[in-house]
Each structure stands twice: as C-alpha cells, then as structure tokens.
C-alpha cells in the first residue's frame, strides 16, 4: 500500500550525519545485537511463531538505504540493502525513520500509523501483524538491543532516548514551520 507519509522527517543536520553511519558495518552490528537479544530473551521471538523466518524489508524513506531483517532468534540476520532489493522480501514496511523508531520503542501506535498511511505496508499481512504484536509486547529499550544492564543501561537509555526526543522535537518544529497556515 502506498505511503502518503506525513510523519516527521529527519532534520537536515541529522541527515548529514547519516553517510558517516552508513560507512559503519551496520548489518553485522545489528545482526549481532539481535542474536544477542535472542540469547537473553528467547521468549520475545517465540511470539513471532512461524513468521520468525519471514524476511522483513524495512525502508526508512529519509535514508538512502534500507534493511532486510530475518528475526529468527539466534539465527537472525540484518542486512543493509539498496532500496530496490525488495524481490525476496515477505513484507515491505516504509515510513520516516523517526516514525519507525517510535514503533520500536512503543511511542506510537502501529495500527493508527498504518490506517492513516503514515507508514505503508505490503506483502504478507499476517507476518506484519505478528511483528507488530511482538514489538508491541517486547517494550524494547536501547539498552536491550545493546545488551547492557544495571546503571550503565539506565544511562544509555536516558542518553539515546533523550537524543531521539530532541531529534523528534526538531523534526516537529521543522514540519510545523513548513505547514500552510489554517
């Protein structure tokens, strides 16, 4: 389904940092992170059932690249791919990066974003639903993905979520300044 995306877009200052991030081995790092999470919280992946072997193509529309994710527990694989490489995917999910991150941390409601077309989804609806319900129940924090615990986890969560909050505010201000007067 096509996106008429109205979600907050990445501010220019953040977008300029992305080529630097893209130079990092993001795929292997995210793969490692997901496999490590599966080792610590196997129950989280059980909720996906048969859909843990599905290939999810996740396309943040304000980035120059996309990801494919096979969330198969300790056999999970994340790859950074070109935006055209959708052929082997079970599901394609498109939307602004900040909106997709909000789905991950539970800030926004996936149903509302889909039905209002802020994010777009095509492919196997049942796999999307399984992923949505799994992410919804997981209540993931940045420290969970990084495998951190204790005081350090608290510090990292505060830092990353705080930074994300600032970026969201910048994006909101940016979109408001571009909106036509009512």
């Amino acid at each position: 389904m096509g996106t008429g995306s109205t979600g907050p877009r990445l501010p220019a200052v953040v977008r300029h940092l992305i080529p630097t991030i893209a130079g990092l081995p993001l795929g292997p790092l995210l793969t490692l992170s997901l496999r490590s999470l599966a080792g610590r919280q196997p129950r989280l992946f059980e909720r996906l059932g048969e859909h843990r072997s599905a290939c999810y193509f996740i396309d943040p529309i304000d980035l120059a690249f996309a990801f494919t994710v096979i969330p198969d527990g300790e056999r999970s694989v994340v790859r950074v791919v070109r935006k055209s490489e959708t052929a082997t995917s079970s599901v394609v999910i498109r939307g602004p990066l900040l909106t997709l991150l909000s789905l991950l941390d539970g800030t926004l409601d996936g149903d509302a974003l889909f039905f209002s077309r802020v994010i777009s989804i095509s492919g196997r609806t049942e796999a999307v639903l399984a992923l949505r319900n799994t992410v919804e129940d997981a209540e993931l924090r940045p420290a969970d993905l990084l495998g951190l615990r204790g005081a350090l986890a608290g510090l990292v969560d505060t830092g990353i979520l705080g930074a994300l909050g600032v970026v969201r505010q910048m994006a909101d201000l940016n979109s408001r300044s571009k909106a036509p007067e009512a």
């Binding site: 129950r43 059980e46 909720r47 996906l48 059932g49 859909h51 049942e126 796999a127 639903l129 399984a130 992923l131 949505r132 319900n133 799994t134 129940d137």
Partner: peptide
Amino acid sequence: RDETNARNFPGLNFSGEE
C-alpha cells in the same frame, strides 16, 4: 495463543507461563 479464543491472530495472546 491458539484457536480456543475468538482473537486468534498472529503474535497475539498468552502462553501458560505468561
């Protein structure tokens, strides 16, 4: 998480432990 309840959708519902 099975067909014994009227909301048997993927990724939804509880295991016994949960």
